[in-house]
Design a protein around this nucleic acid. Structure first.
Length: 561
DNA sequence: CAGCGGGTTG
């Protein structure tokens, strides 16, 4: 077999995925010219085996074979995949061989530098890009734009995209979807829509990646209805399409997310199931959540970190702490989210001591806590009335873990103190906190004043809230109630008049319960449905039973067996 | 005989 034939065969073996066979053939060749080496190198590089590609490149140098522009562009692909680290030395080599200006080599260099990221990588890439001038090709533009988008400089990338369009460079679906994705990362709906129009004009709208990135853009930056319209119009959908629309709905319309899953005509993957699990958590739909758990196990996704995290969170939010713990304990590797979900789960279900114990285990495991963990812990203490524990956590957050509390945490601590009646301390904390208190912080104090009938501080807090947001309806009602409780009827009436001035009525808080796959919603003192009156009767009976059986019975219910 | 870029979902 001639050397040319062998080289052709190496290429086609690699193209079919038989890289090992190609290597065996390569090793048997009596002499290998630069073309044979390059074919083998490129085979490795384009199948993701950059380690082998770089090793082969070294062997080639050791064998005294001089690389040419073909070799260098291939080896740059491997550099890029390996993080772009060796790009500079290949660049030097290209200069020495006088091939540094050949289009494939420059483009590969731009891409390798841009993939290295950081400040330098992009600057180096941009230097080469600018020096190209009229010699720029679509590949140069795309590498540069993708580099910016990948390293957090989306707007620079979009600027470049605009220049590319002005330069009349032919737009590919690849570049188009990268640019749309950049728009959705920075929340630039307007530019994204312009690209949408452009993509239709250039007949790229039917491309799946383009359409998918548009669905994502509308999910993140517009209303999910817009996203949904586009989704419904798509003649063809793949798993990414479905996942994009389901993920887009899972937080804002979890019920619709479930409906979409039901309509899905292809096999879901673990991302699908993760976001459906969150949808169940958002709905506290335990039975659905359990079915999804079953689907997860059947597909062997049980060991996926994100799926497990979502399951722990779902069971916690559905009040089934037993299963949450079971999933959590089964996890072989845990990240901070796993711990947060479990700690938060204990907290929100009233198991403060377990939460604190687990928090200590987490710290012991070397995980540095964050705001979310502390929020879960302190709010658990607040609900359980453990003022000192909560306060100590708040202090240690600052002193031991060096985390600056955010407004949410302050709000929580105000609640903690307020519930315990320590209104003065709560007020002082608001007064001395390094952040500007918002209506929610003052709202927490006002709520506590209502609870403990403190008219003086309540008036103050209400005044602050109305200053910030005159339409905060709840404020007037709370203040009015405090006045009423203090028999200040004149002020009560005045406050009610103010309330009418906002032209709004307080929205009704709804509760709901899932029974036999049906969801029932109701509000306080709702006598509109027969189920509610029935539930009321049952509740009376239960209360009677609980009185009789005492705390042991309550304990059992709480453990949710 | 061999070579570059680049896609959308958490």
């Amino acid at each position: 077999m001639s050397q040319k034939h062998a080289t052709t065969l190496i290429k086609s073996l690699c193209a079919r995925g038989a890289v090992r066979h190609a290597r065996a053939l390569f090793d048997e060749m009596p002499d290998r010219d630069v073309v044979a080496w390059t074919a083998m190198l490129s085979g490795y590089a384009s199948s993701g085996r950059h380690r082998e590609a770089l090793d082969l490149f070294r062997s080639m140098a050791a064998a005294g074979v001089i690389p040419n522009e073909f070799t260098l562009s291939s080896v740059l692909t491997a550099c890029r995949a390996a993080g772009g680290g060796g790009a500079a030395s290949i660049h030097a080599l290209a200069l020495r061989r006088g091939v540094d200006h050949m289009p494939y080599v420059v483009n590969a260099l731009i891409d390798a530098y841009a993939s290295r990221g950081g400040g330098d990588g992009l600057v180096d890439a941009r230097c080469l890009f600018d020096a190209l001038g009229e010699g720029r090709t679509a590949a140069s533009w795309t590498s540069m734009i993708a580099g910016y988008a990948r390293w957090g400089q989306e707007n620079t990338g979009l600027q470049l995209f605009q220049n590319m369009i002005q330069d009349d460079v032919e737009l590919s679906p690849f570049t188009c979807s990268i640019a749309i994705h950049a728009c959705s990362l920075v929340g630039n709906l307007y530019f994204g829509q312009q690209i949408h129009v452009l993509s239709i004009r250039k007949a790229l709208g039917a491309n799946l990646a383009v359409a998918n990135s548009l669905v994502d853009l509308y999910c993140t930056c517009a209303s999910i209805l817009d996203a949904r319209r586009l989704f419904d119009e798509m003649p063809e959908r793949n798993l990414v399409t479905w996942n994009t629309i389901i993920v887009g709905h899972s937080r804002r319309d979890p019920l619709m997310a479930m409906q979409l899953l039901v309509n899905m005509d292809i096999e879901p993957n673990c991302l699908t199931l993760t976001s459906i699990t969150s949808a169940c958590a958002g709905l506290s739909a335990l039975r659905c959540g359990q079915q999804v758990h079953g689907a997860v196990l059947r597909r062997n996704y049980g060991y996926d970190l994100k799926v497990s995290n979502a399951l722990v969170d779902m069971y916690s939010k559905c009040g089934n702490i037993f299963n949450a713990k079971k999933v959590f304990n089964m996890m072989t590797c845990k990240d901070i989210l796993s711990w947060t979900s479990m700690i938060g789960g204990y907290g929100m279900n009233g198991y403060v001591n377990e939460a604190i114990k687990l928090f200590n285990s987490m710290v012991h495991a070397g995980i540095h806590p964050d705001h979310v963990v502390f929020l879960g812990l302190i709010s658990a203490c607040s609900h359980a009335g453990l003022v000192d524990e909560g306060w100590n956590l708040f202090r240690s957050m600052l002193l031991e873990y060096n985390i600056q509390p955010n407004k949410e945490i302050y709000g929580c601590v105000i609640n903690l103190l307020g519930r315990a009646g320590r209104l003065r301390e709560a007020f002082i904390l608001i007064d001395t906190m390094p952040l500007t208190p918002d209506e929610y912080i003052w709202g927490a104090l006002l709520g506590a004043c209502k609870m403990h009938r403190n008219l003086e501080l309540g008036r103050l807090a209400a005044g602050k809230i109305i200053e910030i947001n005159p339409d905060a309806v709840k404020t007037y009602i709370l203040l009015a109630n405090i006045c009423a409780a203090d028999s200040k009827w004149g002020e009560y009436a005045a406050t009610r008049v103010l309330l009418r001035g906002t032209g709004s009525s307080k929205e009704v808080g709804m509760s709901w319960i899932e029974l036999s796959d049906k969801m029932y919603t109701f509000s306080t003192a709702d006598s509109s449905s027969p189920q509610v009156s029935l539930a009321d009767e049952v509740l009376q009976i239960l209360v009677q039973h609980m009185d009789e059986a005492g705390s042991e019975f309550i304990d059992n219910i709480c453990r949710g067996a």
